Simulated scan of single mutants.
Amino acid sequence: MKRTLIAAAFCAAFAGSAFAQQTDGGSGASPDYFSDPAMVGTFYTDDTMATLRPVEEMRAAYDALGEDERAALQQQCEQEANRGTDATALCSEVTTYQ
């Protein structure tokens, strides 16, 4: 019985830390960051956020963001977890704005 309780406590401890890692990916930002129209909607042609604007308009949208928002966007794009997602095309362009 004692072994069972120790094993259960051990599993609970690791399950909690694994859950914490999955919720924010260690970045402190929302996993739905790139689907947030308030943050990246201006980079797209419509509300469905399926088609990116032309490069010149994307640069203007990026420049219109506040410094903190630009830094957050750059950080999210640099995270490997975002590669291969719908944000890849957006990030490919945004990461050139340094």
Rank of each mutant, 00 (worst) to 15 (best):
K2H: 09
T4I: 13
T4Q: 09
A7T: 13
A8G: 06
A9I: 11
A9P: 04
F10M: 13
C11L: 15
A12R: 04
A13Y: 08
G16Y: 14
G16C: 13
G16F: 10
S17P: 03
F19Y: 15
A20D: 10
A20Q: 09
Q21H: 02
Q21S: 00
T23E: 03
D24M: 01
G26N: 02
S27N: 10
S27Y: 00
A29H: 13
S30L: 01
P31Y: 01
P31W: 00
D32W: 03
Y33W: 14
Y33D: 00
Y33T: 00
F34N: 01
S35Y: 07
S35E: 11
S35G: 15
D36V: 06
D36P: 01
P37Y: 14
P37C: 10
P37Q: 15
P37S: 14
A38S: 12
M39G: 05
G41S: 10
T42V: 05
T42I: 04
Y44H: 06
Y44K: 01
Y44C: 03
D47I: 06
D47V: 08
D47M: 10
T48P: 02
M49V: 08
M49K: 02
A50L: 01
T51N: 05
L52T: 02
P54M: 03
P54A: 03
E56A: 15
E56S: 13
E56V: 08
E57Q: 15
E57H: 06
R59F: 11
A60L: 14
A61H: 02
A61M: 10
D63G: 05
D63M: 11
A64D: 13
L65G: 08
L65M: 15
L65I: 05
G66S: 12
G66H: 09
E67K: 13
R70F: 08
A71G: 06
A71M: 11
A72S: 15
A72K: 15
L73W: 01
L73Y: 03
Q74T: 14
Q74A: 12
Q74K: 12
Q75H: 12
Q76D: 02
Q76I: 05
Q76R: 14
Q76K: 12
C77L: 12
C77A: 07
E78V: 02
E78F: 09
Q79V: 05
E80D: 11
N82H: 09
N82L: 01
N82P: 07
R83H: 11
R83I: 05
R83C: 03
G84M: 08
T85G: 09
T85W: 06
T85S: 14
T85V: 08
D86R: 10
D86P: 03
D86V: 08
D86T: 09
A87V: 01
A87H: 02
T88V: 13
A89C: 04
L90K: 01
L90T: 01
L90D: 00
E93F: 11
E93V: 09
E93Y: 12
E93T: 13
V94N: 02
T95V: 14
T95Y: 13
Y97N: 04
Q98Y: 12
Q98C: 06
Q98W: 12
